[in-house]
Simulated assay, not measured.
Amino acid sequence: MVYVLLSVVCSVTVSVILKLARRHHVDTRQIIVWNYPVTVLGSWAVLRPDFSDVVITEAPVGIYLSLAVLLPGIFVLLSASIRHTGIVRTEVAQRLSLFISLLAAFWLFREAPDTGKLIGVAVGFVGILCSIGWHRGSNQYGLNHRVWLYPLSVFFGYGLVDILLKIIAQHTGTPYTVSLFVIFCLAMLVAFGYLIVILQGKGRFSMHAVYWGLVLGAFNLGNFLFYMMAHRALPENPSTVFTGMNVGVIALGALVGLVFFQEKLSRINKIGVLLAVVSVFIIAYS
């Protein structure tokens, strides 16, 4: 469980970095861009992708390109959601995005529907609606101006990413490690293209953003690697890893958001966070 704990800490730290960067007036868009070189180099060192038997014409190039655009774009939405609605709501939305891929498994991938998991999804959706604060006048973040669309976009965006990654995992023509590395490389190219657009507009190049981005990339990569190591360390208990990761991020994110950043939640928001945790347990052990 040490790897699960480390993965949880890295995941929440990513949100904290984006939150603090905003407070220090560092452009979070540029930070996200500079996170990708670390991701690419780290994934190359750890995944060790073998291109020897790869046939480009058989690879799902369309899905690669879709993910290359989606990943940086959703990262920007994640940053915006943290800025406008806080860490607590954003972490709940990101973690419960697993419901999208779970429903896709039933209806798109023809897996047999499981009553327990469907109940968990239903509880989770209620948790999402309660926690993101779509109702008016709930707290300090001005959610009456519809900025709740940010966490909702994070929810659906990461759910779509999960679905596309599952399609790639089922693709037998290309090794999954190769696919992940190619996606990270393409995402980095898209991110640098986005940086060029920023600099040609009103944005100014920030060396501070480079430093922040490299740190962000280290924790983002750590989240991914420790989660993989947790599954390898507990191969017979995937539900334990799944539960520990999702509940851990929601709980630690709530603690950090409420205690260190004084984020204010209404009673219904707190009920939503609790329902999110309950739904993860239902899904994991049903």
Rank of each mutant, 00 (worst) to 15 (best):
V249Y: 01
V4N: 00
S43W: 09
S15Q: 11
L165A: 12
A233K: 07
R22N: 15
R136E: 15
G173P: 09
S66N: 14
F192Y: 09
A251T: 08
F205A: 06
F156N: 01
E91A: 14
V121A: 03
V54T: 12
I198F: 03
V161F: 09
N269A: 02
R23C: 00
A276C: 12
A254E: 01
H145G: 11
D50F: 10
I196H: 14
D162I: 07
E91L: 14
S239F: 03
R23I: 09
V14K: 00
T85C: 09
F192V: 06
A80N: 06
A230H: 01
N220T: 13
H208R: 10
D27E: 11
V14N: 03
I268V: 15
I31C: 06
M207Y: 10
I167S: 14
R95P: 00
N139Q: 10
T39V: 14
L71R: 06
R89N: 07
I163E: 06
A122S: 15
I56Y: 07
A80R: 12
I74C: 02
L47G: 10
M245S: 04
A254F: 13
V273T: 09
L186D: 02
F192N: 00
I183N: 02
M229W: 15
V259M: 03
F242E: 09
F224N: 09
Y64P: 05
V278A: 04
S52P: 15
A112R: 02
N237Q: 13
E236P: 08
W148T: 00
D27N: 13
Y141S: 05
V178L: 08
L160A: 12
Y64E: 08
V9L: 11
V123H: 01
K270T: 14
I268T: 10
R146D: 11
I56M: 13
Y211F: 10
A59R: 05
V46A: 14
A191L: 01
P113L: 02
V61G: 13
D162R: 04
W212D: 03
A122N: 12
L199T: 11
M188A: 13
H231I: 09
T28M: 06
I82K: 03
R95E: 02
I196Y: 14
L275H: 02
V241K: 01
S266F: 02
G159K: 05
T177P: 05
F156L: 06
V259F: 12
L195R: 03
I119E: 03
F156Y: 07
G248I: 03
T240S: 11
T13R: 02
T39K: 10
L275K: 02
D53L: 13
T243P: 02
V88M: 04
R29C: 10
Y150K: 04
W134P: 01
V26E: 08
G73H: 15
W34K: 07
V76F: 15
V210E: 05
T90S: 05
L78M: 15
F75W: 07
K117M: 11
V161H: 07
F106E: 00
W34C: 02
A187H: 02
G62D: 12
H135F: 14
A105Q: 04
R29W: 05
L5F: 13
G217F: 06
L47H: 12
N139R: 15
S179V: 10
L160Y: 08
I82R: 00
L221M: 12
Y227C: 05
S206L: 05
C10W: 04
A104S: 09
L70T: 08
L20A: 14
I196Q: 14
K19I: 05
